[in-house]
Design a protein around this nucleic acid. Structure first.
Length: 479
RNA sequence: CUGGGUGUGGCGCAGUUGGUAGCGCGCUUGACUGGGGGUCAAGAGGCCGGAAGUUCAAGUCUUCUCACUCAGACCA
């Protein structure tokens, strides 16, 4: 169709060039703009509104589970950063440093936080004395800086917004339970609110967070078959506690090290939903986080009564949904394309003919299905459409995940499956040796993503060396 | 950091053997329109990324720089 073709012109087709498609969508949907500092993006109102919705839902959930928000400084003295050896080594290559205050050189340079473990540790060491002070369940919403070489909007930027939870507990068991609980909070959020299926699992030793005893992650699969880590949750044991001298007196009056966790997710989630649900017409947003859930488009809006009816519907629906009326002078066709590009889940068309019949037209973003519904029970109709829509995009993403997950028992099979089907998750057995982990990546291009909680036994031997296998690993190319 | 690409109105591009900048979209004003990116009319908007050089003359040729971008390696 001619009109179809014209819409596609604005956005590069996914099949032609996925990276370009992503960049087109991100810019054309008004999510971000580039700034004059490489890797630092301007998150525009429509993009920021998505983040605010993500924040609202997660923040509520965190608080329900007893967490409190705090704010830590953005600067970390060099000496503080260096207290935990593995941690510095992990982050040193990508930190930005402040060396001057005004024109005076600082006595000790300050790092712009790449993450705030050290600040929390220093603070916790001061405020915790007794087992009665535990647990401490803190979280902060802020931005951090990592001086990345290659950057892409949302997926990898030098400054990014995130949330970092830092908790300390009396026992290892409690801390481990917290780590698992928060991973499940993220997984649940991704599946329910972002309509994005994820694989839950543990990172291999070489992939775990700098300074962690164990790192857990949820991995999602994008439309192009590349994996994206959607959130992580770390168990620190008492490693940082020993480095920062974080102790408490237990009930037996003995000084004891605390056990600690941290967990986080970032604006990268926005990139994840773009690449999970989007299509050649632009964004497709999950209702829970869509800044606009229903866009009302008046048709023949200069005819008497149309705009009034549109406003009336907006006022009425605003009680239950996030609604916008577009009464700009653009043509209806232009508006259709515009709000599809922006991924608005449902558009509501209302024109003179509809008003006469006490009805309106609902059109879903995901499949363009058209429904003529009565204005009398519009709320119910919308709820039903949104629910079905959310399930629809979840199932579509799940189908993609399943279609692109390949169980393999040999290196040759991995290469054959990937060549035949394109990128995706490879499930394969592993002996646990780092050498094999590296070799798999070298020979096939897919790296270890996680050791899933849902283990399967595909064979008794490591896909690489043939020695006895310890566990099944998900492998993939990562964003 | 390694390798490719691109820098010309806001955006996307054209610009021939060097001769003093043009198109589409967008924008402004107005009118008619309006159920899949409408039509017409009149406008506004550019030290051609930067520096040096060759030349009577440089968007175009030479050298050097800077920026962005894509693919790798590293990472949320």
């Amino acid at each position: 169709m001619a009109e179809q073709k014209k819409m596609v012109e604005a956005i590069t087709s996914m099949e032609v060039d996925f990276a370009q498609w992503y960049t087109d969508v991100v810019k054309k949907a008004d999510l971000v703009d580039y700034s004059s500092v490489k890797g630092c993006m301007i998150i525009r109102p429509y993009g920021y509104a998505i983040w605010e919705n993500i924040q609202k839902i997660l923040d509520t959930r965190f608080k329900e589970l007893g967490h409190e928000n705090v704010y830590m400084p953005m600067f970390i003295p060099e000496s503080l950063l260096q207290k935990e050896k593995d941690h510095v080594e992990g982050f040193a290559p990508e930190v930005a440093w402040v060396t001057h205050g005004g024109s005076e050189e600082l006595e000790e340079k300050l790092c712009v936080r790449p993450t705030s473990e050290t600040l929390f540790c220093e603070h916790y060491a001061k405020i915790i004395q007794s087992h009665r002070d535990l647990p401490k369940l803190y979280n902060q919403w802020c931005s951090v800086v990592r001086w990345e070489k290659t950057t892409r909007p949302f997926l990898r930027t030098r400054e990014f917004l995130w949330q970092e939870g830092h908790t300390v507990h009396a026992t290892a068991e409690e801390a481990i339970a917290e780590t698992e609980q928060m991973l499940n909070v993220y997984a649940d959020f991704c599946e329910k609110s972002l309509c994005m299926p994820v694989v839950r699992g543990k990172k291999t030793d070489s992939d775990k967070f700098a300074g962690a005893e164990a790192t857990y992650a949820i991995e999602a699969l994008m439309h192009d078959g590349k994996a994206l880590q959607a959130a992580t949750s770390h168990y620190f044991g008492d490693g940082f506690a020993r480095a920062f001298n974080m102790t408490y007196q237990n009930k037996e009056n003995k000084l004891t090290y605390v056990h600690q966790t941290s967990w986080g997710c970032t604006t990268r989630l926005i990139g994840a939903l773009i690449m999970s649900h989007g299509d050649d017409n632009g964004l497709v947003l999950p209702p829970d986080v869509a800044p606009i859930q229903v866009v009302i488009l008046p048709i023949a809006q200069h005819k008497p009564g149309v705009l009034d009816k549109a406003s009336e519907l907006r006022d009425r629906l605003s009680k239950s949904f996030r609604v916008k009326v577009d009464s700009s002078d653009n043509s209806p066709g232009w508006k259709f394309a515009e709000y599809e590009m922006k991924g608005v889940p449902v558009r509501l068309e209302i024109g003179p003919k509809d008003i006469e019949n006490n009805q309106c037209v609902l059109v879903r973003r995901d499949n363009r299905e058209k429904l003529f519904v009565s204005l009398d029970n519009l709320e119910e109709s919308l709820n039903a459409v949104l629910k079905d829509y959310a399930e629809g995009i979840y199932n579509k993403a799940l189908a993609n995940l399943e279609k692109r997950t390949f169980a393999c028992t040999t290196i040759d099979e991995i290469n054959a499956k990937l060549t035949e089907n394109g990128d995706g998750f490879v499930k394969a057995m592993w002996c646990g040796e780092e050498e094999c982990q590296d070799k798999v990546k070298e020979l096939t291009g897919v790296g270890s993503r996680c050791i899933p909680f849902n283990q399967e036994s595909l064979s008794d031997t490591c896909v690489c060396c043939g020695k006895p296998a310890k566990q099944m690993v998900y492998w993939g190319k990562a964003y």
